[in-house]
């Protein structure tokens, strides 16, 4: 069990971490990529590939096992491949084990969200030092130990020693800690938005903040339609400003002409 767990955690960690640096977003962490790689590490490439196809179909919602789609594609894929290769279990059995681990991992991850959020002021301070090399290096170093690392450790213990330990740990936490941390994550975003708002806020146009707000809350529109409405308002404002300035220039010009005429007249 410990070997399965170690290999699964290793593949998960490397791929999850690497996905942050190459090929855009959520490419390497998809089942169709990570399952063959897990197979390769665990010594059965062929099974990894075939399972990659099956797992990708499950997670794309093409087919579901027992009517349910497990929460986290990456975790579930790695664990399912590990179990199938090392114990001869079926995909269904592998996923049955993976599902509670994925759920426990995401609730544990939720606990740590405020921790990553509390790093934000540190990043801001580091950025203002205007030392881009240092900023990049510290970012890369810290990224070794954040989400992928914590997740891989939790995955390792859950696979090696059973998910019960993790679940009882989570259950032993008072409910208010969990709800409190959950509530904090929803409200912390307001800090980011508040900094942004205070930078672009200016008296004569401030009211437009509420136009966007109301369009979401009352009309339930998405960002694309709101952007189109907003662009229409912005463009018509721009155009009326342009007309005003055109008028101003033409007025100044005629005034100059009139003055010239008057001088001639007198």
């Amino acid at each position: 069990m410990v070997t399965i767990a170690l290999k699964a955690a290793f593949v998960y960690y490397v791929v999850y971490w690497l996905d942050t640096f190459i090929l855009s977003w959520q490419c390497l962490t998809r089942p169709i990529v990570i399952a063959p790689l897990a197979g390769l590490v665990m010594g059965d490439f062929h099974t990894g590939i075939v399972m990659g196809a099956a797992l990708e179909s499950i997670f794309m919602g093409i087919s579901a096992i027992g009517g349910a789609i497990p929460a986290d594609a990456t975790t579930s894929s790695v664990i399912a491949v590990a179990y199938t290769i090392l114990t001869g279990a079926s995909i269904e059995e592998g996923l049955a084990i993976a599902m509670p681990i994925g759920t426990a991992m995401s609730s544990f991850g939720g606990l740590l969200t405020p921790l990553w959020a509390s790093l934000a002021p540190f990043w801001e301070k580091l950025a203002v030092e205007a030392n881009p090399k240092k900023f990049l290096i510290v970012n890369i170093l810290v990224s070794f130990f954040t989400m992928p690392f914590v997740n891989a450790i939790v995955l390792f213990f859950a696979v090696a020693y059973g998910v019960e330990g993790l679940n009882s740990l989570l259950a032993s936490l008072p409910v208010w800690v969990m709800t409190g941390l959950g509530a904090a994550s929803g409200m912390m975003l307001a800090v980011g938005f508040a900094i942004l708002t205070s930078m672009i806020w200016s008296g004569d146009v401030a009211i437009f903040f509420f136009v966007g707000y109301v369009l979401v809350k009352y009309a339930g529109l998405g960002t694309v339609p709101i952007a189109i409405i907003g662009a229409a308002i912005a463009i018509s404002l721009f155009m009326s400003d342009k007309k005003l300035s055109d008028l101003k220039t033409s007025l100044t010009n005629t005034q100059v002409n009139v003055n010239d005429d008057e001088e001639d007249f007198f």
Binding site: F208, F209, L215, K217, G230, A231, I233, A234
Partner: peptide, 18 residues
Amino acid sequence: KSASVLGLIMVGAMTAQM
């Protein structure tokens, strides 16, 4: 000015969503 208007509308919308 137009950019601020559009920016504020979108910040308002994103605040409402998130």
